[in-house]
């Protein structure tokens, strides 16, 4: 009827129910996104088999993998501290996660710089490599944006432990990005 009533829409539903809805929706989103990564893996194997360009830097690959795994740990710590109500630790852990994520992106950027010489996008390996890492880095970036917004909110006490959904959601998404890399790392670097 009136649009003013409309603004209060959905407010009367129980917070526990809303949390369940949000969680399920996020899981559906994660499932859908994981299919994109599966598709990229299929493209990789159908075009290249297990071929890997020999100039791909194993060292950087290992380093950024360790960094991303470590960032998942700090993200987990952030969520735990939030559940304990320890906002200081939450902020600290979120900040470390943001830092590690940025280092990861810097690592990929450095690697791209090398790769442009060794296997440019106009080669098949380059196409696969840049698309896979590019799609993944795009997800890392969106995750970082979410984490940064959540960090700001926690800092300004706009997100508190009574409604920690923003923390949970961004952390869960961050773990998902990590899981995607768990499969991309061997597929891009290790098999040959």
């Amino acid at each position: 009827m009136t649009a003013v009533g409309h603004a209060a829409h959905g407010v009367h539903e129980a917070p526990a129910k809303r949390l369940g809805i949000n969680r399920l929706g996020l899981w559906f989103f994660i499932l859908s996104e994981s299919i994109l990564f599966v598709g990229l893996l299929m493209v990789r194997f159908s075009l290249l088999g297990t071929y890997i360009h020999e100039e791909l830097s194993q060292l950087i690959g290992l380093m950024i993998t360790v960094i991303l795994l470590a960032s998942s740990f700090t993200a987990y710590q952030a969520e735990r501290s939030m559940a304990r109500g320890d906002l200081g630790a939450t902020k600290r852990n979120l900040l470390i996660t943001l830092g590690l994520g940025t280092v990861f992106i810097a690592g990929v950027a450095f690697e791209w710089h090398e790769a442009l010489e060794a296997f440019p996008p106009s080669t098949v390996f380059g196409s696969v490599f840049f698309t896979m890492t590019g799609v993944h880095v795009f997800h890392v970036l969106t995750g970082l944006v979410m984490l940064a917004i959540v960090h700001r909110r926690v800092r300004r006490h706009e997100t508190t432990s009574t409604d920690s959904w923003p923390v949970e959601a961004s952390v869960k998404y961050w773990h998902f990005v990590d899981v995607a890399w768990v499969f991309f790392y061997p597929a891009l670097y290790l098999i040959s």
Binding site: F28, L31, S32, E33, I35, L36, G39, L40, V43, L47, P121, S122, T123, V124, G126, S127, V128, F130, T131, V135
Partner: peptide
């Protein structure tokens, strides 16, 4: 939910092939 990701992938590959000269289909 499941299959639309593949059209995203197909379109992405063509866009990258057009603009960045990627060689998926060459």
């Amino acid at each position: 939910l499941i299959f639309t990701q593949f059209i995203a992938l197909a379109m992405l590959m063509v866009v990258f092939a057009r603009t960045l000269g990627m060689a998926f289909f060459e």
